[in-house]
Every structure is written in structure tokens, then in C-alpha cells.
Write a protein that binds this DNA or RNA. Structure first.
Lengths: 153, 153
DNA sequence: TATTGTTATACTCTATAACTATA
DNA sequence: TATAGTTATAGAGTATAACAATA
């Protein structure tokens, strides 16, 4: 029983993801950020999340890991954490002006990365790719993250 | 100028890759391995690589990082390193019997992961996805890794 | 007691720089 | 000198477990 197929799609995806993620990391680093910082910021900007647990879930990390990043971001003056008066267990995370500025730079870097990524791909190609990626994601049993439709980069 | 598009494909790819890679990592870990170990083994099995530098390049890591992994793999009895008599600077890396056994287990885990990933996708879907992923990879300027066609999982 | 988040600690993967061995 | 690889060290991202604060 011959197998006309190439390497397993998981391996191709892993390799592609590694290359593309690394390029994205480099682009974000050049703009003064990193992938976790970018994911945290874009989640803060485009989703309504009640607490840090939800924020961590949206990004796919644990609460303690999020605290780790928020500590660094707060030390860098990018975010503030204030207790919610209505429920003082909850820390409300907000971007500072400096955080907003960095967000703008990272958004530009992400847009440029995306432009590069699109290159020779048609709109249909992108739509197809998006659809297939979402299906892969649901196939591994993860929740498909709420699409951040309309958000820039 | 409205933007009817959803989130940038780079973000979708990053999130999908994270979910899928994590699921793959978990599957490999359950089988007693890890992604780097798997990539090293499959490269040893399916490519003809002259030295460790080429092996590192094939995987997308630096030589020192490869040494780090090979040290651990050698300590675990998975590989041997022997100097090439013709050029004693070169270390020939080979899987031990135990390495072969683990390779078999990891291949099975990878195949199962792939089966899960395919789920509701047709052959055409997979071919399309593969084509698009390769184009993404070339769009970020990386060399498209030599396809390990015919290799299982 | 349950929920929210932090602190302490550690692991994995990766990298750069300095080094050894060989050619 | 140039090449192949290793050692030493460090940094980023992640995780678990124990803890403190609040409800």
C-alpha cells in the first residue's frame, strides 16, 4: 500500500510554524517587544476579559506565567494593575501611555510581517488557509480563540 | 476604506501553531520524547547529513544547541557519537538500538497526532494546506526544508 | 471554603562567546 | 588560519506548588 503523501502535515506545520514564528519574534523584538507581550496587549485591546485568568486562557498560558510577564511589563511602565473596587481580588490591567505607544509599534511590525507573509497569496488563499488552520486547531481539541476580527495586526 | 478581513494570518498561524505544537509536544512527551529529539531523530533517519552543522541547520537550531541535545540523548543511550576516521573533526551521530526503539514509539505518536489532525480534512485540503504553508515559509525568507517524503510521521 | 492572583523555584529550549581538537 | 564541535554561561518562556488576600 503505497503512500503517495509527503511528510505528515503535523511536521510541515511544526516546521513552518517554527520559521514563521521566529521571523515574527524577530520582527517584534526589533520593534521592542516579544510574542507574549504582543499577545497580552492585543488581548487587552480587543477583548473584554474579566480577570487575569481569562486573559491567561486567551493567550494559552497559566496564571503564574501571566503574572511573570505582567511583572516585567509593569516594571517597564507598559501596564498598570489596579484592584477592582467592586471585587478587590481582581486586578484590572490597563495599558499606560507608554504601553499604547509600544502597542502601536508592535502593530506596525505585525502588519509588515503580515504583508510579507501574504506576498504572492490571493485573498482566497488566505481565507482558505485561515479556515484550514482553524480546523486544525479544533482537531487538536483546543478551544478556537475568539477571533479578534477588525483589530489591526 | 473598510477592512473586511479578520485577524492577520500571522496571528492566526501563531495561535494555531501554539495549540497544535503543544498538542504534539504532549503526544511526544507521553511517548517518552520531545520535539527536538524527534526532529533530530527524523533528520538522522531520513536525510544524509555530512556533519552536525548540517544537522543543526536542518532542524533550525545552532550547533551549540544541538550539542546540548545530543549530550542528553547520548546520556540517555539514544545515540552514539564517533569520530569520522577520514576527518577526525567530524562526529558521526548514529541511533542506538534503544534510539531506534524510541524512534518507533515517537513515529507512532506522530502518526496518531497526524490522524487526529486530519480528522475531517480531505486529501485536497491537506494538499492545499501544505502548499500554502510552504509558501508562507518561503515568504519569510527561510529555506524550505527538504521534504522528508516517504518518511513515516 | 472558594476565588484571584503572587511568589518561589525549576525545567526546557535556545543563544553567544570562549575554548579544544583537527586539518 | 579555518573548520568541527564542545563547554560555560545566560536568557526567555513556561510550569507546578505553596502562599496571601479577598469574598
Amino acid at each position: 500500500m503505497p503512500r503517495p503523501t509527503g511528510p505528515p502535515i503535523g511536521l510541515t506545520l511544526a516546521r513552518t510554524a517554527k520559521s514563521v514564528s521566529r521571523a515574527f519574534d524577530d520582527a517584534l523584538a526589533a520593534a521592542g517587544g516579544s510574542l507574549p507581550v504582543w499577545l497580552i496587549m492585543i488581548s487587552l485591546k480587543t477583548r473584554s476579559l474579566g480577570n487575569q485568568r481569562e486573559l491567561a486562557d486567551a493567550i494559552g498560558i497559566r496564571g503564574a506565567t501571566l503574572t511573570h510577564h505582567l511583572n516585567a511589563m509593569e516594571a517597564d511602565g507598559l501596564v498598570t494593575r489596579q484592584r477592582d473596587p467592586a471585587n478587590r481580588r481582581i486586578h484590572q490591567v490597563a495599558l499606560t501611555q507608554r504601553g499604547e505607544t509600544l502597542f502601536g509599534r508592535l502593530a506596525a511590525a505585525a502588519t509588515e510581517h503580515d504583508r510579507r507573509l501574504h506576498a504572492d497569496l490571493s485573498k482566497e488563499d488566505i481565507a482558505t488557509l485561515e479556515r484550514l488552520l482553524h480546523r486544525l486547531q479544533s482537531n487538536v481539541g483546543s478551544e478556537v480563540p475568539e477571533a479578534t476580527a477588525g483589530s489591526d495586526a
